[in-house]
Design a protein around this nucleic acid. Sequence first.
DNA 1: CCACTCTATTTAACATGTTAATTACTGTGA
DNA 2: TCACAGTAATTAACATGTTAAATAGAGTGG
Lengths: 145, 145
Amino acid sequence: MAPRLPSTSRSLPIALIRAREGVMAPIREMLADTGITEQQWRVLRVLSEYGPLDASTLADRASLLFPSLTRIATTMREKGLITQTRDSDDRRRQFIRIAPAGEQIIDDHTAQAAQIVAGFRETLGDAQYETLLDLLGRLDPGARS
Amino acid sequence: MAPRLPSTSRSLPIALIRAREGVMAPIREMLADTGITEQQWRVLRVLSEYGPLDASTLADRASLLFPSLTRIATTMREKGLITQTRDSDDRRRQFIRIAPAGEQIIDDHTAQAAQIVAGFRETLGDAQYETLLDLLGRLDPGARS
DNA sequence: CCACTCTATTTAACATGTTAATTACTGTGA
DNA sequence: TCACAGTAATTAACATGTTAAATAGAGTGG
């Protein structure tokens, strides 16, 4: 029963980090000339898909911690990528919506981003790509199974 | 041929982030009382497994960027978790080795860490756990397939 | 109305991620 | 030996991750 840790070469956390790096590298490269980060890209993607959202929901869907979102939103507002408005019913709450400049970035890069995703899908094959997403989902405690 | 991005709910990068968060949360919790971070734990694990390493190799095996390792190593040296020595042959190069206090942290937490890993393996099942590691490996451009 | 509690968000402090520039040292060829 | 290219590591600057504390507004029972 001697408890043994797997070699770091077969460590799940490290494998996740490296895979993420492998997947994000081309996306970061794509975004390099736009001056936005991968997290800002994620915020734009979520807003573009779901429409205006309150900050909590946005943070959740973009997988950002709240303090990170606060800073990111400030940056993005200053860049004119989003707009922030207070909820008049509950003035603690805030709504965030994508601005035209933000939409533009999405429009300009959707095709290329889709191509990058398609490349990974092809690398693994459709079936295994879906398998991977399912397995990853089972490691996410937030996912309602 | 309209290029379409997948919904963010089926996005590979987001799935990787969430899975990593799910896997790391219990490990961070385990480390909370030691005062070391998950990255410092990774450094200790690699040093413990491979013995003394030069900084480049250590950064590579722990999946840390070099500037991060520089800061982390400084912190860990000040805490007495590692020692750093210059290579006398090539004085640019540096060797890093784990110190007794570092060994102690590894020893104190190996059992619990192994149990956490075992939990995830059980969640997915042995076969799917291995499948996951293999699929993740195929997304890592650094992995020689 | 008021103390109290809860919730949404922000701020603070420190650690790491990321890219670019810089420093220190090594090896090489003129 | 000296200028120069290359390598190992550090430093700098900015963005995000992470946890804890602080603010601000909303809701509730007395």
